[in-house]
Amino acid sequence: MSGNTSTSMIVTLGFVTALSGFLIVTAYQTTKPAIEENKRLRIQQTVLEVIKGATAYKPFVITANGDLLEATPDLKGTNVYAGYDAQGKLMGLAAEGRAQGYSGSVETIYAYSPACECITGVKVIKQTETPGLGDKVITNKDFVANFEKLDAKLDAAGKALANAIVTVKHGSKKNPWEVDAISGATISSRAIAKGLNGSAQEVLPKVVPLLSTIEGAKP
């Protein structure tokens, strides 16, 4: 076959690659606004649902060197969302928690209320736990009630939580910072609390001193 020389191979591959590049770039440009709008709507819905009383929110990012900045598309870091009511009063903060569950990572968004220095709600955004057992962390009312007022005070130095959020065996919750596990779904319950603790220990010490800045930055 005469077309089997290296030149023709290079030319053909080059042509096909160029064509494919053109198609991909076109598709990327066309769908980009829709994709970003979709992502934003999804986050907005979750954040406004988890921060009680909030009607508007503003995204912030904690950068690698610890600064809290208003989110822009190219800023990388830990996401924090501030929720405000209609009067522009700061109702709470939301951040993302993540920990290993029974069969994969369990990702949550939780709300922190500066008024009571506690966590006021948790929403699971991604989980692959055993249906019927592990997913009780979403449906079990007693378990969800754990997070209506879960203590998350900072210690005197303001560097970490005064009491780490821990999971305890079902029925033995004594302190406001303990999470009462679901019997039969201990590992999944623990994953939620662990994700909360990990995120709160990191985010709250940085955010709480800047609450007035955040309040002033209302949308």
Binding site: L23, I24, A27, Y28, T30, T31, A34, I35, N38
Partner: peptide, 9 residues
Amino acid sequence: TLVDYIMQA
């Protein structure tokens, strides 16, 4: 890749 973008959108 096209399908990937379209589905995300």
